[in-house]
Design a binder for these strands. Sequence first.
RNA 1: GUCCCCAUCGUCUAGCCUGGUCCAGGACACCACCCUUUCACGGUGAUGACCGGGGUUCGAAUCCCCGUGGGGACGCCA
Length: 458
Amino acid sequence: MSQVRVRFAPSPTGFFHIGSARTALFNWLYARHTGGVFILRIEDTDRERNQDDYLQLIYDSLSWLGLNWDEGPGAGGDFGPYRQSERTHIYREYFEKLKAAGRTYEQDGAVYFKLLGERYEAYDDHRKKTVTKVRNAPAVIDDRIRGRVERTEDEDLVIIRSDGNPVFHFVNVVDDITMGITHVIRGEDHLSNTSKHIELFKAFGVPVPEYAHIPLILKSPEMGKGKMSKRDQGALIGDYQQRRFRPEAVVNYLALLGWNPGDDREKMPVEDIIRLFDFPGINQSNAKFDPKKLAHMNMQYVHEMSEAEFEMENVASMSTSVTTSNWVQESHFPEVLRLAHPKIKSIDEVPEYTRYFFTEDYPIDDKVRTKVLAKGDPKARLDELIAALEPADFSSDTAIEEAIKALAEGKGLGFGDYQAVARLAVTGTNAGPSITSIFRVLGRERTLGRLRRFAGTI
RNA sequence: GUCCCCAUCGUCUAGCCUGGUCCAGGACACCACCCUUUCACGGUGAUGACCGGGGUUCGAAUCCCCGUGGGGACGCCA
């Protein structure tokens, strides 16, 4: 059997979103699984709505996700050009073929593709007008995911607009023919279009490619009904990139949306996904997007990052913000990251989580304050702690722990009686690394300064 | 409205093709407990689903039909 050639064919008319990414991913996975070719083709025939920014975003997002293309813009290939705006001569040539076969006609300045069959007038309830229908035999789609699907195409369709630009259905088919596409893997929303495409393939006298219509990604119940769109919360790939999500986590999650390896495995390296990925593992029903599960997947990948990797990502992330760019210069920055790493769920929450390590200007959580101050005698505990820490050894967690434990024991109390109020004073919250680590990293001066300052407010 | 696709816990899903091993398994979320100096992580456990109705069969989550529900398409957008 000849080599598999698949394509991802986005149009640069909007932000790159989850749905497009998943379609790209499934094509890429299939190409990698079969040792085939993954082609990137830019469908920019709608000149009005195309934008260079959106085009760049497609390249950036695919690259970020690791979905490298073998042929396409920037990669070359023998079937180019790979932007439809540069392929007009090819469309012209294929249009002439149809014209020569007597399968086109002009109307209102546009060129129509003529279906074969008897014509009749009928009222269309959806468009609220009378249209010309054609008695046509159903097109048979032998779909690798849906099975045999029949749909009758019963209206001529525009293939060249009155402004001279060819239309999606036409260029899509011509490109699939001329680029030697063997498998068309795309969203189920195209299933109804497929009959149009099959009629065109037949008119050109060439065999149709294999079709695989993958399920759609729908909004989560909280987001509403219908399919996910670029306007939905969490729909944009660029957002995850900005938030420093792990691209492998996004890929892993997306792969599981509509596909599974057939067993309970979820978190798996992309090599394994490639090995196991195939049409039988793809579901037929649509899947709702779950931001929480994606976040969980991302957390798992973040936690297994190496220290160096985690630091690099955070430096990159925090350097871009004016408030945090100074933090990365601090000598204790690496140590703070080591403390935060196992505690946080995603990289974009690190700045807020570690704020008090870098500035005296950290907020005091009112709710926590009220709660902590309501218990026991916090003022007394704070004063005792200050006295005990003044001469203490701050060089290690255990040294600090010994000092506090000795203090607690002397008063007939426990470590916990000092922990909560000390944490509130020094961090403003009730969450964070162990209090001894915080003290150690902050150092004696800053720790005592904060304890004294806070003691003065209660 | 017409046409097309789909239907297992709130969500993602295994099981369905090749009926019995399923009073339906895993994961996320939620709840409880454990771990613990806080908060997380982690661990243990709990709650939670075969859309409805017919049929086929000794037996149906699994096969068939009809409803219903969900999704999509119906552009000189892609």
